[in-house]
Design a protein around this nucleic acid. Structure first.
Lengths: 190, 190
DNA sequence: ACCTGAACACCGTTCAAGT
DNA sequence: ACCTGAACACCGTTCAAGT
């Protein structure tokens, strides 16, 4: 891959013709679409090239490898999650909202479980989500090392619930238990 | 695949020659070995055939597909887990032991995370483990629908901790919180 | 019953060559 | 700068044919 974008179509004074060339963003979007409909086994560089009216080899100008493409697709999906407002909300409510958003994401994009376990993608999209959950725990009153632990506990439970394909009600039950267990670790403010 | 075994080498009176033919068990063991050393991407029917001094096509006599082979390998690994004694042990101690066994399993067989997420294997080996955890929860005093929920909560957390590759200490912290949260749901015996 | 060899329809990736 | 075509070294799976 290279760092460039040429998504902006140049009109007028620019010398370049304004045909819509292949761009990384466009490729990633198409990959997500293909993954959503055909599953993780349905994504091939050849099929994707065809889908884009292009060629497998052409994709390699914009993306280093299939591995990287899956990484980009995963991160893009994490990035699309909405984050709840932290001001004035009870921490368990906000955490529940985040968990339900994640659960919905894994249902919309069932390939993400596979992609996560094979490539362990950790890009800016996921980092943003992580940091929000950490901030949530800190705001809840966990003292410093425990805030990170609390975040990891919640995250492990929710991802595990998605991997084992639990129902929504099962998710809610477990999450409540996790929250209750964590609540005990909060040292009350003086 | 077919249901047969010819692992037992016949000597003496039997007419058959005693060469050690390919058997499903042998194939699965070899597959696990290959997966452990080469990862999920390193397993191919051709490589496996070679490893067994045989041929990719020969494997298909004993195993229906690569999918099934991965399923069998996953279940075999679950089946190898030791289960703690339930008599006279505090439920949280026993649960912690099971969680640590699982964590060690996922570390020994790093491909299992991928296999689990792609094929969601649920065979007798895993069922045995599941049932033990359920029995543990029932014995702990959870009333009927909650025992299953408690089991699922613990399981989701531990698998999630393995998927996100948490450290041992992080696993223990989270598990304690999960246990504490669940403990509240136990209705005390009269 | 069990295995071999060859074939089919795919893969990811590279790379000269084109524009 | 960006794309094409053809090639390389692989795949999983099937199937006639052998023993």
């Amino acid at each position: 891959m290279n760092g460039e974008r040429q998504d902006v179509v140049q009109g007028g004074a620019g010398g370049r013709p304004e045909r819509q060339a292949l761009g990384q963003e466009q490729i990633v979007r198409a990959a997500i679409g293909l993954l959503d409909t055909a599953g993780i086994g349905g994504l091939s560089m050849r099929r994707l090239g065809e889908l884009l009216g292009s060629t497998a080899a052409a994709i390699y100008w914009h993306v280093r490898s299939k591995h990287e493409l899956l990484w980009l697709a995963s991160d893009a999906v994490w990035a699309e999650l909405r984050l709840p407002d932290l001001e004035g909300a009870e921490w368990r409510e906000a955490s529940t909202t985040m968990a339900q958003e994640m659960h919905a994401m894994f249902q919309r994009h069932s390939w993400l479980v596979s992609a996560t376990s094979v490539h362990a993608p950790y890009g800016p999209g996921r980092a943003r989500h992580d940091n929000h959950l950490l901030a949530l725990c800190s705001a809840a009153g966990f003292t410093d090392p425990d805030a990170g632990h609390a975040k990891e506990t919640i995250q492990a439970f929710v991802i595990g619930a998605c991997v084992t394909a639990r129902s929504h009600t099962s998710l809610v039950f477990g999450l409540r238990a996790v929250h209750d267990g964590l609540q005990t670790r909060i040292t009350p403010r003086p």
